[in-house]
Design a protein around this nucleic acid. Structure first.
Lengths: 328, 328
DNA sequence: GTGAAAGCGCTAACAG
DNA sequence: CTGTTAGCGCTTTCAC
């Protein structure tokens, strides 16, 4: 049988509650007994039964995490595993556990979340994808379940969130491209409904405008988030226009665009976003933006844990710095 | 307050123990009461408190998962997230939960595992990396903790494991390259101490031998698992020999080798392994091997859960099929 | 086939 | 500062 609080109590010559108190670091407990108890714990190699604690405290100290069920998406975007790493290491350092789920659909996701919360398995959840008109967020709000989202939500005031400053990151990128001597710069983005696309597109437009470059709507394309999307859009752009550069909202899209550029035998600079391995191993390497996904995970966990521990946090969001990667 | 078994009992006009019995699907309980209880549960939207159940049954129905703490490794190798997906979806379907940890070092890993087991947080663990002389495996064995490893272990008889047939996969690849008309085929692998490298190297050697091609030890290189490793090794190979093809044990190594080949302006076929996005987006695309990492995760979870539920499984290992990807 | 009661290992009032 | 006591919500003997 496993060693319990009782054995420790017996060995240390105190009551179980005293042992519990030193476990929870109760303020008024004499140093002397503390040490006696610690000694006993060490001697017996005692590990508290977390399950029992959970039941008694009605707090699981566990954070839920929902992964999209799209293996291809997960495999091509280090984003997820990076976020996951950031969350896990921060949470662990704070004594929190991570419980993983995946779900194929939005309804499945809600079902999974409902189960996890209602079954007392998690205290809060971090959402790695933010959809528009997000039913999960709605569900979580309605049921008062603590959560934080990665990505700018609709209701920025009443939800906890972390994100990059996508506007500024793209603004910088476009400025960089302009300084390189380019004027006619096209934009290929993912779904125009996504907040992230909107923000990056605004940065693009603002950078042009502030440099006195005419913003031409016909140079803006919205595509499916894929290599093929970038390829097709770039082909159209190249056919119809005499452009100097193409900025995109993701390395994967950029890879497709670059392929079209090469096929057209043009010497046009293409930029990516998110600093993925795929982009990194292109030739020439794509200028891109490091979004520090590990940090996103880190701060999302931090925000959630602060909320759960009722730490008076002045913040309900966190902006993680990006870094322009210029490459050769 | 949450709805508990008591309320359900009251509404259904039975005792709490009866409710528990229908929950656990006890054999001798009348259909009539079963249905009354179900109805009550539905009416109250009852969700059993899993924590309480864990405490009572002393089974957590939770599987631990340790990720290496190397973000770069995780980001460049979809392997991990794929394995993770496979595990999660299978486990979930079987009513098991997944708890995630990461650890920076092998000692940290052991510590984490010890904590998770001793604190009654997990019933078993799946190890995603297999080291030689693995201290984690030793620890798990000594403490009788259920686990399965992904990758062929040293002691194949007494541990649960899943893996690809790396020998055969490489054998096929080399055969394919030979049939393409190549004779002088070099081999670049990762650390020669790793079982996976050894197996793939054997497949390479056997394929040559069986085709009557002289096996030349000087054409075999062991490198650090990276693009740079592949690049350097290929440069040496190209300088010293007149070779037709280079097979490698990973897409990342292959990408580096391909770079060297291009620089040398040779027309030499380079093959990868593991079918990663990085390799996929090369030009020309690398012939590679799909290792079906999701399946590896799937079967590892299956093996572990069968062990945990004491299902008399005839198997203590599982070989997941690979697929040769020839590309254009 | 079902109920009563004890107990899983811990925490948290309430006393003193 | 520390011990006593009563649960947390479930499962599981042991009766009947």
């Amino acid at each position: 049988m496993r060693v319990t609080i009782k054995e420790v109590a017996k060995l240390a010559n105190v009551s179980p509650s005293t042992v519990s108190r030193v476990l929870t670091d109760h303020p008024k407990i004499s140093q002397a007994t503390k040490e006696r108890v610690w000694k006993a714990m060490k001697e017996l190699d005692y590990h508290p039964n977390v399950t029992a604690r959970k039941l008694a405290t009605n707090a699981t100290k566990t954070i839920g995490l929902v992964l999209p069920n799209d293996v291809k998406l997960l495999a091509e975007n280090p984003f997820f595993i990076q976020v996951l790493t950031g969350i896990t290491s921060y949470a662990q350092a704070k004594g929190y556990y991570i419980m993983l789920t995946n779900a194929a659909t939005e309804e499945g996701e809600i079902e999974a979340l409902n189960h996890l919360f209602r079954s007392n398995l998690i205290d809060g959840v971090i959402m790695t994808v933010v959809r528009e008109n997000d039913q999960c967020a709605k569900f979580l709000n309605e049921n008062n379940h603590p959560y934080v989202v990665i990505g700018k939500p609709n209701d920025t005031d009443n939800t906890l969130w972390v994100d990059n400053d996508n506007f500024q990151a793209m603004y910088e990128m476009v400025n960089y491209i302009i300084r390189l001597g380019n004027q006619k710069i096209a934009f290929i983005g993912g779904s125009s409904a996504l907040t992230v696309t909107k923000n990056r597109r605004s940065g693009y437009e603002m950078a042009l405008t502030n440099r006195g470059i005419h913003f031409d709507d016909s140079l803006v394309k919205s595509v499916k988030f894929s290599e093929a999307g970038g390829y097709e859009a770039a082909k159209v752009l190249l056919k119809d226009n005499e452009i100097d550069a193409i900025v995109t909202t993701d390395d994967l899209i950029a890879v497709g665009a670059l392929k079209a550029v090469k096929e057209a035998k043009k010497d046009i600079i293409v930029t990516g976003f998110n600093n993925t391995p795929i982009g990194n191993y292109q030739n020439p390497p794509l200028p891109t933006v490091e979004i520090n996904a590990v940090q996103l995970g880190h701060y999302s966990a931090r925000l959630l844990i602060e909320k759960l521990t009722k730490v008076e946090s002045t913040m309900n969001s966190y902006i993680v710095d990006t870094k322009l990667i210029k490459k050769a």
